[in-house]
Nucleic acid binder design. Structure first.
Lengths: 108, 108
DNA sequence: TATATTGTTCGCAAATATACGAACAATAAT
DNA sequence: ATTATTGTTCGTATATTTGCGAACAATATA
């Protein structure tokens, strides 16, 4: 009956994945990843949703550690959090790369 | 005012990410990726949640296209959906690889 | 001091997600 | 026919997510 808990690794993959689990947040990340300057207004312009909602999505991405923001009064500048982005990259490459299915043995 | 919609690519990344956005589902995928035989019972054994909940998570993964199942009465055999797994791999590598942050220019 | 600009936060509504036990379905074994 | 095995589905409760407008905060400008 001793069911396994989730590993820290699994939790972290899930946390990142969850943050990327909405098209608006994917769009935000994609936009930020290709910009050097990245004010809230620029992000808002790109998206078909209200600014309050954009702000919320940004907050979630920040809490997941994928982006960071700094105030440049009166604007707010956002950008990718490089360290965690790199971490996400590593985790996902490892996670998605571990499938044995390359050999044709599975489910056929 | 013409706000951009999300691209199909962004929608697909979000769909996969959302499916991977829960530790139980990450654990399931990880388990399946390393197995050749993969019955519901084996999966259930690995997880600290009720079978009804496991079944639900499997359904979501199936709907996202990441896994597939076939009945082997009285058991049910699950496995990674290879084509979509590969697609996810490609999408995430592309998505996570597009960050300009390699150059130190961003947010410093 | 009033006004404009830029975002965040609050309060709310509606939709989804998560989890469970109980009931059920399909087959196999007694 | 009853019982056991293996999973799915149903009904339900609770929590989280998503989205918006309105109100607010901080600063700059007239």
């Amino acid at each position: 009956m001793a069911k396994k808990n989730y590993t820290l690794n699994q939790e972290q993959v899930a946390r990142f994945a969850k943050a990327m689990g909405h098209p608006a947040r994917v769009a935000i990340l994609q936009f930020l990843a290709q910009q050097e300057t990245c004010y809230f207004g620029n992000i808002h312009e790109e998206l078909p949703i209200a600014k309050a909602t954009v702000s919320q999505h940004l907050k979630e991405l920040k809490e997941a550690g994928l982006i960071q923001g700094e105030v440049e009064t009166p604007k707010v500048k956002y950008c990718i959090n490089r360290d965690n982005w790199r971490l996400a990259q590593e985790l996902f490459v490892e996670f998605l790369g571990q499938c044995e299915c390359k050999k044709e043995s599975c489910c056929e």
